[in-house]
Nucleic acid binder design. Structure first.
Lengths: 203, 203
DNA sequence: AGCCAATGTAGACACTGACAGCATTGTTGT
DNA sequence: ACAACAATGCTGTCAGTGTCTACATTGGCT
């Protein structure tokens, strides 16, 4: 489709789509604005109308990544299954996304590091944590988890899951299958959260 | 020092040292081989005698990072304090390193991703996990942890600690102090490991 | 002393991201 | 209908980069 008119019609979306493919396949370092322009059938410099910088493009990519990830996490925690199950589903979704799109995930987390990150990016990257806090609070209210700082519990859980995800994508599990590592981590974290009640209360 | 002789005398070390500084301060993307050569007072292309690629230099940097980190972890687990304390010390050391050298840590984990990673790099990056397995096995033998798969327990613990570390460096703790997040994570993981005994045995 | 490998230099090349000026298009107000 | 105008795309240019090749200098070995 598209008869090579002067105006592309949907350049921004086309650039983002192709950039996703390239980054997903070769990593962010393998992305060249000029090559990207060639792929999409447009001249170099055309992208500047839609993305000031290369970094701006990567930021937009990161935003899309977070959106897809957040959507996936949202699906996982939806429903009215026991909280332990929904918790596990969310963890699986997170690690699964990471394993499928390691370079994208990496881009997502390196993008916001570069000081002048867009407001969109900062916002969409901070969605998951409060959602997790809400889930844990609900679990506490339902009596599946002991009372305590939901914020702290969420940080712990998020860290653990994010950790398995990066370990898996960075091939640091020393041969341990990532599915097993994920399952074990989620189970262990849940045990830790449950045990937090019967233990000496954390500061 | 150094009278600008034709031969530098210790170029490899000088390049690595300066590269460490630059990456630590500006990230791996801020490293330019040519600028690096200027900094060290040598012509561009000189580095090629010591590092085939830019990637080779980054690999060497990563190796050094792992060496320092491993040394720090080794110090932490040494001694004969209770295993819970040594476990905590190791976690603190890991996160502390990550917070002090975020860009280096990132470089360490991205380096080995690029297929043709040196044998040195692969080896030094896989040191921590077996050490952790040994620590946990010892804790099990001493009765501080219930019996079970030490390998699985190590993966879980490593993932959690690595997770807090990356969350802290990527500013994803939503204002939660990283020291608190680290302490909470380590405590929770330990509880999870302890509780693994009294629970339904994990596959 | 004389050779030779190791190390550093100088030049070239293709490529990159960014910028400026121009060309083409779609839209909007009259 | 049509003129302004903003949006979008094109081309040329620039400094900077990583890598390669040919050459220069050095120190160590016999």
């Amino acid at each position: 489709m598209s008869e090579r008119t002067y105006h592309h019609g949907n350049l921004r979306a086309a650039l983002l789509e192709r950039a996703w493919e390239v980054v997903d396949a070769e990593g962010a370092d393998g992305l060249s604005l000029r090559q990207l322009a060639r792929d999409v059938g447009v001249s170099h410099g055309a992208s500047a109308r839609h993305f000031r910088d290369k970094q701006a493009l990567l930021d937009a990519l990161a935003v899309e990544g977070f959106q897809r990830l957040n959507a996936s996490l949202g699906d996982a925690v939806a429903g009215d299954a026991p909280f332990a199950d929904r918790f596990r589903a969310a963890g699986d979704a997170y690690v699964s996304f990471a394993v499928r799109h390691p370079a994208i995930l990496r881009t997502m987390y390196t993008a916001k590091h570069h000081a002048a990150a867009s407001a969109d990016l900062v916002e969409v990257s901070h969605v998951a944590m409060p959602a997790l806090v809400a889930l844990i609070t609900a679990a506490q209210d339902a009596g599946e988890l002991p009372p305590g700082s939901a914020q702290e519990a969420a940080v712990v859980a998020f860290a653990a899951v994010h950790g398995v995800a990066t370990l898996a994508t960075d091939d640091l599990l020393n041969g341990f299958p990532w599915q097993d590592a994920t399952a074990a981590t989620i189970a262990s974290v849940w045990r830790g959260l449950v045990a937090a009640g019967s233990d000496a209360p954390t500061t």
